[in-house]
Design a protein around this nucleic acid. Structure first.
Lengths: 337, 337
DNA sequence: GATTGGCACTCGGAAGCCAACAGTGCCAGC
DNA sequence: GCTGGCACTGTTGGCTTCCGAGTGCCAATC
């Protein structure tokens, strides 16, 4: 009986996701063979309603799952449906072609959006503990210096800084070669979060006449190092959002705002379970954000502490969502190991 | 008389942009003092309609500008309204804080979206003729090599490549130091589009035993060089699109698709006038793309051959659009010079 | 000749009404 | 505990009606 009620809940969720219309006892029986009559289904439905799992938009309409209903569905009914092996193969071959990290993440996020037909998000891997691998200085134009910071995790960040005009001749190639050697000696192997003191020392040991230029370079490096510790998100499938909203009362506008903001998303992803491969689902109100009250997030950790996720209307296909997110998270983790 | 007709066209465009509703002779007079009676306005309106500048959604409705009407408005009626000096100051101070090129462009595109309330696009500066400044090889993990290509224009691109497993010991630090020196000797100062032959020579002169690794590196460099010649677009304000679509018959979905595609946008921007500071407006059908038939683009060149633009419904505020695009294009050009 | 006030005409959209329909709750019987 | 039957309910869609904003045209006027 308990069993059957959940089965009915599952059928309601499934039909509602498919048709986007409140589902009634009769049409439910048309699509699912439950082995009982419509009247019985009706009785169970009113029990489900008492429990707050489904609700009626108005008397004499069908039922619609509530957030709590989706939650129960995800927790007790939905079974993870492993991807078919052609799917797996397709994913593998598509991702294996990836050149570097950026490429891999871009491909992943696109694939995720395409497979789930939702908005896909991939958090850039957290690299807080990255160590410096190499610092490079390149004089680009007469008065421009390019500062490049390369970490052991293989990330490269650069910044162009202007050199004080009129001082050009003083800073010749040798000067920069020397500075580069000293910089590398000072910071290579150190955590990017712990560059302030070695850089300060280096600056202190610089002859006063050259301090201006060195100070510029040191400042750029510090700002690069800080940038490095900031998280970023890449996104794909924003158009899917509009698609779900077409015949459905979702306000797309504030959602697009949020997607562009990134800040809320970062906080959201950051608050999710970090265990690699573990999928977590947040439904509607469970995300404590007004603009996201009508949406759900299915996320999973990958590597250490980073996340990938999909975001869509609470009325989304959780089964394929969960499977796909899980599969891709596992795949990316493995790829990066 | 010719004069007045254009004035009426201007008033219609203005009202229609503001109210989003077909404008009739009477309501036009409520909002504009034209010094003539409604009947006269009606006569002029039918002339404007004969010329194809405005149209009626149905008999007994007001008039709506056609694409041709907007075109006439932009060409003959709209006067560029210079930004107010507080606006100018705000722009300047916001952009002056930009650290590097990326930062500048990101800030610009956001500002553009915010000021015009449309979708803003900024094309990454074209650097087709860039010369190689420096090549760097960094061994990241045991079996990973990071290849970095730095151009004289100050752009940095990287790629991580896997080294053939089991061959590790053979490729020691010296090997890469030597390879790096030879690579730099071969390509520094050359156009990124002309690396194939020097790289081929280098590969040919490599002892057969090491050719595998060198081939990998050469391949990575070639692909980086090719990447470099590809254009990119940064974008902001997608949410503004949804906003304009709220009570208006624009299909947002295909538009979002296009914005995510970038390819169409690149072609579009590429086909626009390249003279720095010159503003070009493309209205509806003039963009030869079905999905963009309901939208207009206001673009301007900056630096040499790159563009920035806004994209919105044909029913958009061309006056502030044009002024803002022009101002920002000029500002960015000056900043980069 | 351009402009104007007047007038008849035309649709689209809002409001109102009604029937059909999908769905419910409840109850008596199996 | 399940089921068929039945009365009840609110939404949806089609139909009609009505109102008003807007037009085109014309004769009169500046």
């Amino acid at each position: 009986m308990e069993e059957r009620r959940l089965q009915i809940l599952g059928a309601i969720v499934e039909d509602y996701v498919a048709t986007r219309e409140p589902v009634g006892s009769k049409s439910l029986l048309d699509r699912h063979d439950l082995g009982v009559s419509a009247a019985t289904v009706r009785n169970d439905m009113s029990l489900l309603e008492e429990e707050g799992l489904i609700t009626q938009p108005h008397t004499s309409a069908g039922r619609v799952p509530t957030d709590k209903g989706y939650r129960a569905f995800v927790d007790h009914v939905a079974a993870v449906k492993p991807l078919s092996s052609p799917e797996k193969r397709a994913i593998r071959s598509f991702l294996d072609d990836a050149g570097d990290l950026d490429d891999l993440l871009t491909r992943t996020v696109r694939l995720l959006a395409q497979l789930t037909q939702q908005v896909a998000l991939v958090q850039y891997p957290a690299v807080r503990q990255a160590r410096v691998r190499h610092v490079e200085l390149v004089k680009v134009a007469d008065a421009l210096l390019l500062v490049v910071l390369i970490t052991e995790s293989g990330q490269v960040d650069q910044r162009t800084i202007p050199l004080v005009a009129g001082r050009g001749p003083e800073y010749d190639t040798d000067f920069f070669a020397d500075l580069r050697a000293r910089l590398n000696q000072a910071v290579v192997g150190r955590e990017v979060t712990a560059l302030d003191s070695p850089l300060g020392d280096l600056l202190a040991r610089t002859p006063p006449g050259n301090q201006d230029a060195v100070r510029e370079v040191v400042g750029a490096l510090q700002s690069l190092a800080q940038n490095r510790t900031e998280d970023r998100i890449i996104m794909a499938g924003a158009a899917n959002l509009a698609r779900s909203a077409v015949d459905f009362p979702i306000q797309v506008e504030p959602l697009l705002d949020i997607l562009e903001e990134q800040l809320v998303l970062l906080r959201l992803l950051g608050s999710m379970q970090a265990e690699p491969g573990a999928v977590e689902v947040r439904i509607g109100q469970e995300i404590h954000d007004n603009a996201l009250a009508q949406t759900s997030v299915v996320g999973a950790g990958y590597r250490d502490g980073s996340h990938l996720a999909i975001l869509g209307p609470t009325r989304m296909d959780y089964v394929t969502g969960i499977s796909t997110v899980q599969a891709l998270a596992r795949y990316v983790s493995r790829f990066l190991a």
